[in-house]
């Protein structure tokens, strides 16, 4: 990706951030910071530093306060994600059905720890605390596709499906 490309991407991105902020400001409600950050997270799959600076400026809220909220919540990420997000459910039901072995296998295979992204930005590995489809446990979700009743031997095959 060229430098100019990145720049235009950033600019269009910030325009979108602006739109989201405006949407909330117009409604004039109190206490929408979390909702706003969630929207930005789902738009970009992470919360870029530039977005936080912009929110701080527009809402007249100190950056420190925004970082405090964004780092507190599990659903918000301050680092960019890989092309594919692999979520391993480690809810109690999956835990007792062998999920720890699946996570081990994924970490070994991708050579990263949970919460990290592979160097080639292909995969981000995240653990989640229950996806609520306990009947399928252990469950691995890649980009929203559910893979249920996983065994360690199935891990490699699943990853191969995502280039």
């Amino acid at each position: 990706m060229g430098k100019t490309n990145l720049k235009t991407e950033l600019e269009t991105g910030l325009e979108r951030v602006e739109e989201i902020i405006e949407g909330y400001k117009e409604r004039g409600e109190e206490g929408f910071l979390i909702q706003l950050l969630l929207d930005i997270q789902s738009e970009f799959n992470w919360i870029p530093r530039e977005a936080i600076a912009r929110i701080s400026e527009r809402l007249r809220v100190p950056k420190s306060k925004i970082y405090r909220v964004a780092s507190f919540y599990e659903a918000m990420s301050l680092t960019p994600a890989g092309r594919h997000t692999v979520q391993v459910c480690l809810g109690t039901a999956c835990q007792v059905r062998g999920a720890p072995k699946i996570l081990d296998r994924l970490e070994e295979r991708l050579r990263i720890k949970e919460g990290e992204t592979t160097l080639d930005r292909r995969f981000s590995l995240r653990r989640v605390n229950c996806l609520g489809c306990c009947a399928m446990g252990p469950v691995v979700v890649v980009d929203g596709n559910y893979h249920g009743k996983i065994t360690p031997a199935m891990v490699a095959g699943i990853l191969e499906k995502y280039a």
Binding site: I34, L38, R68, V69
Partner: peptide
Amino acid sequence: VHRGAGAFVSGESSALMNAIEGKVGE
């Protein structure tokens, strides 16, 4: 409707109310 952002402790009633106010859910 207020969306929670993934923090177990925010299910605690006073923490949840902090979150509704847009603060950290403690």
